[in-house]
């Protein structure tokens, strides 16, 4: 069907209104759960599951926010999540920066085979490895420490994805820059450190964001490895707000969830242009 003969149904203003209307309708399922979560964190427990559901309450209370801190070492858990995600991100930047560069630029025997071996790390579901890994970390005396969360994220799937992204970026980087540097007497490490890494900033920030999020959202692993509340990470802590009989303290959970989501959203709102642009220049582009 050719559309070029069909008259334009509406003018620019109408088009614009239609676009906004479409976006708002589409956005509803993305936004409403989060808004409901925030709104419900200010409700008394008995109103959260009132039916029909409502957004607002007549008796708003911020008590749940205080409870979140009183009930668990929530500030500590917040710190745990932040520091683990930062450490993981730093390791991944270094490891994937090196590996991605080598896979893209250095010729060595077995390069393609080794790249495929590394890529397997992206494909193995955590369900396959979680029991054996638990055994290994147990033998190493690292159960109920943060090591498993740091090491597995920093070297397995999220890091492999990062290596893949970095390789794609370095493949697209003009080789002339390096040749000039080599003439100036720089070795491989020097070239990588002085020339390529600074140029790779967009790809590195994309990797940083994706890695930070995967560490930040990790759920299965902390649940398996950590048992002391002061070591918990946030996603795990969120499910631990229960009363003595196992009943969920919904409003406290929702308040805690709100506190974990809002800062990240604010950061994304501020940084999203850069985020998209980093990705655009990261070699993932068309």
């Amino acid at each position: 069907m050719r559309t070029e003969t069909a008259p334009r149904p509406f003018g620019p203003l109408a088009r614009r209104i239609a676009l906004y209307a479409a976006l708002i309708v589409l956005a509803a399922p993305f936004v409403i759960p989060t808004l409901w979560m925030v709104a419900s964190s200010f409700k008394p427990l008995s109103e959260i599951f009132a039916s029909p559901p409502s957004f607002f309450t007549d008796s708003p209370t911020a008590a749940a926010y205080g409870e979140a801190f009183a009930f668990q070492p929530f500030a500590r858990q917040y710190f745990n999540s932040v520091y683990i995600a930062l450490v993981v991100t730093l390791i991944v930047l270094l490891v994937s920066g090196l590996a991605g560069y080598a896979f893209a630029r250095i010729r060595f025997p077995g390069r393609n085979l080794l790249f495929v071996v590394v890529l397997i790390g992206l494909l193995v579901p955590s369900e396959v490895t979680i029991v054996p890994l638990f055994q290994m970390f147990k033998q190493a005396g690292m159960v109920n420490t943060h090591w498993p969360l740091i090491l597995v994220t920093a070297f397995a799937a999220p890091c492999v994805l990062a290596t893949f992204i970095m390789r794609q970026f370095f493949i697209a980087l003009p080789v002339e820059l390096e040749e000039a540097a080599r003439l100036d007497g720089l070795g491989r490490f020097g070239i990588w450190r002085r020339i390529c890494l600074p140029l790779a900033r967009p790809a590195l920030s994309a990797v940083a964001i994706l890695t930070f999020l995967s560490s930040w959202n990790l759920y299965l692993e902390p649940t398996v490895y950590l048992t002391s509340p002061e070591l918990f990470t946030l996603p795990q802590a969120l499910t631990r707000f229960t009363d003595p009989y196992g009943g969920e303290m919904w409003n406290t959970q929702l308040a805690a969830a709100t506190m974990t989501v809002v800062p990240v959203l604010v950061v994304f709102l501020i940084a999203q242009r850069q985020f998209v642009e980093s990705l655009a220049h990261s070699g993932l582009k068309g």
């Binding site: 250095i106 071996v117 490895t129 397995a156 491989r188």
Partner: peptide, 18 residues
């Protein structure tokens, strides 16, 4: 350059799969 990544994958993915 690839050693850290490769060893990481071997230790935290390949060995567990085995």
């Amino acid at each position: 350059f690839i050693a850290p990544q490769l060893v990481g994958v071997l230790v935290f993915v390949i060995v567990p799969v085995g």
